[in-house]
Structure formats: structure tokens, C-alpha cells
Design a protein around this nucleic acid. Structure first.
Lengths: 197, 197
DNA sequence: TCGCGCGTGTACCATGTGGTACATGCCTGC
DNA sequence: GCAGGCATGTACCACATGGTACACGCGCGA
């Protein structure tokens, strides 16, 4: 079945990377023949597109989870979100995300579509949380963008260094920066929020 | 000469990406033959290593520039640094950086060395600025790590969306977050600093 | 039972790859 | 002038790739 093949392919690609991977090598790793991959996905490009599309869907599923729990304080919500998104079980998917991201920056064929919502899709739910805390739409959008950058920047750091303690400390610094300035900024009539999750 | 070839190769690779690039295509783009590339760099892998190493050197040269000007306020220094690092003339190099970064996350052969100092080398100069503003070493290090994540996260955003205004607004949000909380945190005996440049 | 669509595997092809043997030219020191 | 080293180009090789023609077998409806 094509779906099983796709799942297995994503598993392998997430674990081992997609760059310079041939249909033949992938097929032997998956216990089939490259003929099958061509058959089910049309071409090599078709396989990559299917994989990337599927990973995108999984990422967006995470966004949905992200906005679920509103019972926590902003600081605790941030911590919970960070613990979730930075869990080692998600690292393979995130490595794949950054790998394809890096290639898409050069506008390679087949990767252009990946960039489409790569920031925009995340801004809506995150900035919704900001607006709920009283930010203006413009401020909420800028804060969401910043929070997204912090998350991705620290994730990139974590994947590269695997220095869990150091990256966690930076995230705590980020949380502190937001919560400490919150009272002050509230006094000025606006609040920073920036709840990345 | 090998150095000229390397410079030209970096120029092309920065502009067009390194993934799936063959020695032959690169050679014809450079107006030479793939024989020359093999001759000067030993092998294809050798060329990639030379390119990555050279790009690393250029990145580190930027770090040196980063800590030069101490006459500006932290906020203005941040703005100046961001204007510098986010200038479109540097985009090709940064695309290449993220591209190789993404591949290195999978520990591909020849890219492992790139990850070595990818965070650490930047922490020292940035946290030095933090310590100069009165932060404890641990706080300065966490702040530096956060500032680096913000810079890279927003850079990734900028390269993908090319939404200059939106990303600049997020950076202003970051600067505001730091400067506004500075007085408050100073009252608590520590200052956030986070001067990424 | 037959026919047929579909999934699967094998064998093959044209192409592009990295690497290299060999020839040529150019420049420098004697 | 010339001899030797070095850069460069041409031609070739063995190999891996993506794609495809073809064959086989299984399951299902008529």
C-alpha cells in the first residue's frame, strides 16, 4: 500500500536525511524495490513532495495541540509547549524540517511550496494567544513572529549541540524576559504576552 | 589558482545552493573543467569541506565586527547589528549556512565539523557584552544563547518570507522587550543586556 | 473458470557521475 | 634554449542513478 510505504519512507528519511538519497537506497532500506517507489509516487520528485507534504501536515497538527490548553499561566504554557516541541522523539522530524527548509531557501524545484506557510501558518494561532492577552493586532503579530523565531532558533541550537541544559536555560531566560516585563508593559497600556504555545 | 577557484565556487554555491551540485556543472558554471576541481581539491568531498571551512571563517570574521563598536546604546547596537547581518548582500552566504546546517544535523560525512562551534563560538563574544553590563556569567551565557536564537530564527524567517517589514517589527519587539525590562531587572540586581552585536 | 486489474519484482537502458590516464601548453630557473 | 614542474584540457572508465518494458502472481467479479 502506498500509505504504508509513505510512512516508512518518512521514518527513514527523518532518521537519515533526505539529501543525496536515491530511490534505490531508500527502497532497499524499506525492503522493497525502487520500482515500487516510482510506481506509487510517479517519480522521485513526487516522493519528495509527498513526504514533505505529509510532514507539513504533522507540523500543523502540532499547532492545533499548541492552542488547546488555556488553563495554564503564560509562563507555564510556554514551558509546556517548549517541553513538548523540544522532546527528543520529535527531533527526527525537526531535523528533516530544517534540512528541507535549508534547501528550499535556494528555491530548488519542488521545495518552493514548502516555504509558503512556513511562518504565516504559525502566526495566526500564536498571535491569537497574544491578542487574547490584550495586545493590538500589530503587536500580537510581531510578538508571535518573535516567539516563533525564538522557538526555531533554540530548536536549531538544541539539534546541533544537544546541550539540553544550556538551551533550556536560554528558554527560561526568554520566559523570564516576558513575564518580568509584563507588569511594566501592562502599566504602559500594552502587554507583551508572547505565548508561543 | 586554487584560491580563485574556491572564491568563485563559493560565490556560485552561495547563489545557487550546494545540494545535488555536481563537479561538472559547477566547473562549467565556473568556466573550467571538472578535472581542475578534482585536481585542486582532491575530491568532491574535499571541495565541499574547503567551501564550508571558508564560509565558517567568514562567519567568524563577522563575529569580530560584531563586538567592535561600543559607543552605541544597547538598543542601537542591536539595531545596527541586525541591519548589518540582515542586509540582502549577505543573504546568499546565510542561505548556504542554513543549507549546510540542515544537512549537518543528520551528521552527514564532511559536515560534522561545521556543528562544532556553531553555537559555542558565538556565545563568548555575545556573553562578554552581557557581562560588561553586569550580568552573572551564567545569566550572560543564557542571554547570549537566547539572542543568538533570536537572530538566527528571524534570519531564517527573513530568508524564507523576505518580509522585511514584518521581521523588522519582530526585531523591534525584541529590542523593546530587552530595554523595557532593563530598568525593572536592574532593580532586582541584574540586567538583561542581551546585546546581540 | 476465466479475465483482468493491480501490486510487485527483474532486467534493461540512457544518462550523468566522480575519478583518472594522458597530452598539451605555459612559465620559471639555469 | 631548454628542461622540468605545474596548471589545464580531453578522453575515457566503471558505476550509480531514475525511469521503464515486461513478466509473474494474487484476488475478485462475472
Amino acid at each position: 500500500m502506498a500509505q504504508e510505504l509513505l510512512d516508512a519512507a518518512i521514518g527513514y528519511v527523518a532518521a537519515n536525511g533526505l539529501t543525496d538519497l536515491s530511490l534505490r537506497r531508500l527502497a532497499t532500506e524499506l525492503g522493497t524495490s525502487h520500482r515500487m517507489l516510482s510506481h506509487h509516487f510517479g517519480s522521485k520528485e513526487g516522493l519528495w513532495v509527498a513526504i514533505i507534504h505529509e510532514v507539513e501536515q504533522r507540523q500543523l497538527a502540532l499547532v492545533d495541540q499548541m492552542v488547546l490548553d488555556r488553563s495554564l499561566s503564560p509562563a507555564d504554557a510556554m514551558r509546556a509547549w517548549w517541553q513538548h516541541i523540544s522532546h527528543p522523539s520529535l527531533w527526527p522530524n525537526e531535523r528533516l524540517f530544517f534540512e528541507v527548509y535549508g534547501q528550499a531557501l535556494h528555491r530548488r524545484a519542488g521545495t518552493a511550496a514548502l516555504l509558503d506557510g512556513i511562518v504565516e501558518w504559525w502566526l495566526a494561532p500564536i498571535s491569537a494567544a497574544g491578542k487574547a492577552q490584550g495586545l493590538s493586532p500589530a503587536d500580537a503579530r510581531a510578538s508571535a513572529r518573535l516567539a516563533l523565531a525564538v522557538t526555531r532558533g533554540l530548536l536549531l541550537d538544541l539539534l546541533a549541540t544537544e546541550d539540553r541544559a544550556g538551551v533550556d536555560a536560554a528558554m527560561e531566560r526568554w520566559i523570564a524576559l516576558n513575564t518580568r516585563s509584563q507588569g511594566q508593559m501592562a502599566r504602559k497600556g500594552s502587554r507583551p504576552s508572547v505565548r508561543p504555545g
